[in-house]
Design a protein around this nucleic acid. Structure first.
Lengths: 152, 152
DNA sequence: CCCGAATTGGCAGTATCTGCCAATAGTTAC
DNA sequence: GTAACTATTGGCAGATACTGCCAATTCGGG
């Protein structure tokens, strides 16, 4: 993992569909070694995958919510159960464990407020063992990038 | 924006580098109209771009932090100043405006705790006009996907 | 300075992309 | 019901890009 690899990662974070030739040019390599480095980063799991960044509102998902959840009990069974449920719920795009009071933070995407209410009532509450739920709606997005702060 | 478009979006969210031929097969189209639909979604801004999903820890960015910030004043000047600064700071990968007490939530990526302290002291505090900062470190990630909950 | 290992660059066969045109499917008016 | 119109599709072909192989180069260590 040298500077070239970091340059490759940043370039592919900025444009994940650039051709290998463009990428090679961007990092001052010829196409062959460039492609080999990319494949190597993929094989090592340093590049996990690629994805399209789509406009949620245009897809009818107008509301983004950050939900913070605290569990009543933190024994292995309840924690595993909760995390397994998170994997299954499509509306949950992200679920992080936070330091502090053993909190989770979810990023949830729903079409409207009614769908959010249904999400809480029919997806979250039935899990059980939940001590508290704190909801923050996203009003606007000032910045959103995939590019890491790497000094190259 | 019909079902085919939604299928295309979901497929490209799952694998942003799949070839047009694979994509065409996945959504039951021949390559030509499939590519035209993709280009159309891109032109309309529904697909904003593509990016590689890289392992931050492997890149030396071990610490992810969610930072919640409240401003002292919410006049146009101070808000614009703050948001302009957010754009400039590389460590800030996301900055959302939240409902409620006119809060911001940042997702920040740093190599270590010392770098986080420097980030707060030298990047955030100098902005001025900040009423409070609340830090939540990410302990683990249960789920992280780019795929929208679309019923197709 | 020389040797060995790792990385690079070029080449060529294969696969993919993409603009163009005819064919098809879906819709509206009568 | 049908004719005409529109939007979308599928196929073709030239251009572009991918990728495995081998020789050349670079970089460290002795």
């Amino acid at each position: 993992m040298d500077n070239k690899d970091r340059q490759i990662i940043r370039a592919l974070q900025q444009d994940g569909r650039m051709t290998n030739q463009e990428l090679a040019e961007a990092v001052n390599l010829s196409p062959s070694p460039c492609l080999r480095r990319v494949r190597n980063l993929e094989a090592k799991g340093i590049i996990r995958g690629y994805s399209a960044d789509a406009d949620a509102a245009a897809c009818g998902l107008a509301i983004t919510v950050f939900v913070r959840i605290r569990l009543e009990r933190h024994n292995e069974t309840d924690v595993q159960n909760f995390e397994r449920r998170m994997q299954m719920i499509e509306d949950v795009l992200e679920c992080h464990v936070l330091t502090g009071a053993m909190d989770y933070q979810l990023r949830v995407l729903v079409p409207d407020l009614e769908a959010y209410e249904n999400f809480i009532r029919h997806r979250i509450h039935p899990i059980g063992g939940i001590a508290s739920i704190d909801t923050s709606f996203v009003y606007g997005t000032v910045k959103r990038t995939a590019v890491f702060p790497l000094s190259d």
